[in-house]
Design a binder for these strands. Sequence first.
DNA 1: AATGAAACGAGATGTCC
DNA 2: GGACATCTCGTTTCATT
Lengths: 152, 152
Amino acid sequence: MRTIDDMDRRILAHLQKDASIPLDDLGARVGLSRNACWRRIKALEESGVIRGRVTLLDPEALGLGLTVFIFVRTSRHEPDWLDKFARATRAMPEILGAYRMSGDLDYLIRARVADVAGYDRLYRALIRKVEMSDVSSSFVMEEIKETTELPL
Amino acid sequence: MRTIDDMDRRILAHLQKDASIPLDDLGARVGLSRNACWRRIKALEESGVIRGRVTLLDPEALGLGLTVFIFVRTSRHEPDWLDKFARATRAMPEILGAYRMSGDLDYLIRARVADVAGYDRLYRALIRKVEMSDVSSSFVMEEIKETTELPL
DNA sequence: AATGAAACGAGATGTCC
DNA sequence: GGACATCTCGTTTCATT
């Protein structure tokens, strides 16, 4: 794996905020020439530090005004169950995140839907696909922070 | 606000996955000329549907192997407290998401840290900044799904 | 081994029909 | 939607330290 130095971090910090910044500008900001930047970025891509460049959309504008967290407990702890759960959540586009947790909570799901009716559809589809003993949901009233930027 | 039709959705679906796709390829995939694609994208940017283009990084490669969810209850419900909480979470780069919730849970925080020691530092920094009556955390054992793609 | 200057070429941008 | 001209910017080459 590539050793990431301070200059890499500075470059990544900028790219995390805005991937469409020209190499000239980026170089000027971090104090490097255009192709020194370019070489580092390419190396970071090849080593897998950079996962990709994506376009971020406004959920509100797309009619996805409601974020919901779904807390799941299950009595079934076979690997088979996890497999089914993983396939189900990955196949449902409303589900943005799914996590197996420590503690007494077993699984946590983060999803985006239009409204409460949309949540209900998601909920029904989910329990139809995977057996769950205890499901409780909590709606996001206010999104205080939401970022894709990792701490560097 | 702009009305988003089916063609817009198809374009956005591709851009959400990969922002660096050439306009020619994008046009071929959705069945539109490069020019038509370009015009739509520009309109979607100006109307705010497209928020921006960012680079996604690999947390593991950056030594951020641990995702943690922090559940917060507070006895203080003045707008002043929320203000302080919002400023604190926004200022802490380890915190990727912060939400005011419905139900008996008051606030939920999603964060990325290196390890349990890193979590402890974050926890201490947080309670030093904002008064909280009840904080409990749960660590992510397995990231089953994590995406920035919204359902279209 | 990493950098910078310069040249090259692909693709984005803007305008025409 | 297509065709065009222009120009920015990613990419390659090479010299330098």
